[in-house]
């Protein structure tokens, strides 16, 4: 019997956003319940027992932080990811201090949301034992920081290797420029020059890992980001 899918509860009062989230998260392989008010959400937390809660902070009648506080007071074992348009450092700090596990400002890229959900649900799995990542004929040695494809050594700069490693860790999933800026370039905010730098860097990486080969691994998803995936033709 296959393990049951993790359940995610979404408390979000905007029906349109809520519908988009349900559709996107379900197709990523999760069970989804939704609530449009704090009371309903709180009821579902108890009845459905979801593993993860996506919580909007600005809800009618009752603030999202109130629910979070109550959940933590009752000691319910659930991971909480806050989604909000209040996106200042103070808001983040308050959210995390109240007991949230992660925080994502609206508007977010869906790719990033999925990455965060995966990370939160995976957090307690044991770390990988191996030091190699393999995508098709591309092999990354994470300890020696070397990459080769089809037996040929690839001459990558440190930044290119980091980028490739990040893409490999998120294989088959689209990563957004926001994620790359924060996780690979370690830039706290996003500005136009950064996107430019990312695009150029990505073009160079593609030149090294894909151009000499017939099967292309690195794909650009227009308007969304980049994806490293093994395409079977």
């Amino acid at each position: 019997m296959p393990p049951s899918k993790p359940t995610i509860l979404i408390i979000e009062d905007d029906r349109k956003l809520s519908a988009a989230l349900v559709s996107g998260i379900e197709s990523a392989g999760y069970e989804v319940s939704t609530a449009s008010s704090a009371e309903e959400g709180f009821f579902l937390v108890h009845s459905v027992r979801p593993q993860l809660l996506l919580l909007d902070l600005t809800l009618p009648h009752r603030n999202g932080l109130d629910i979070l506080r109550q959940i933590r007071q009752e000691g319910i074992d659930i991971r909480v990811l806050i989604l909000t348009s209040h996106n200042t450092i103070e808001d983040r700090v308050e959210g995390l201090a109240t007991g949230a596990d992660d925080y994502l400002g609206k508007p977010f890229s869906f790719a990033e949301l999925l990455a965060r959900i995966d990370a939160l649900l995976r957090r307690f799995l044991p770390p990988k034992e191996t030091f190699t990542e393999t995508i098709g004929d591309l092999v990354l040695d994470t300890r020696a920081r070397r990459a080769e494809r089809d037996g040929q050594q690839l001459d990558l700069t440190a930044r290119e290797f980091d980028l490739l490693l990040y893409l490999a860790a998120n294989r088959d999933r689209t990563v957004s420029r926001e994620m790359l800026a924060r996780d690979v370039w370690r830039e706290s905010s996003r500005y136009t020059p950064i996107d430019n730098v990312i695009d150029v860097q990505m073009a160079r990486l593609r030149k090294k890992i894909d151009d000499p080969f017939s099967v292309k691994l690195l794909q650009t998803v227009r308007g969304v980001g980049f994806c490293l995936r093994e395409t079977r033709t």
Partner: peptide
């Protein structure tokens, strides 16, 4: 859809700059 998405990203970048 990609074109719409690109514009959404651009809108977001403008708002980020305004906030900055």
């Amino acid at each position: 859809l990609s074109s719409v998405l690109e514009e959404a990203v651009r809108l977001n970048a403008t708002i980020d700059s305004l906030l900055l």
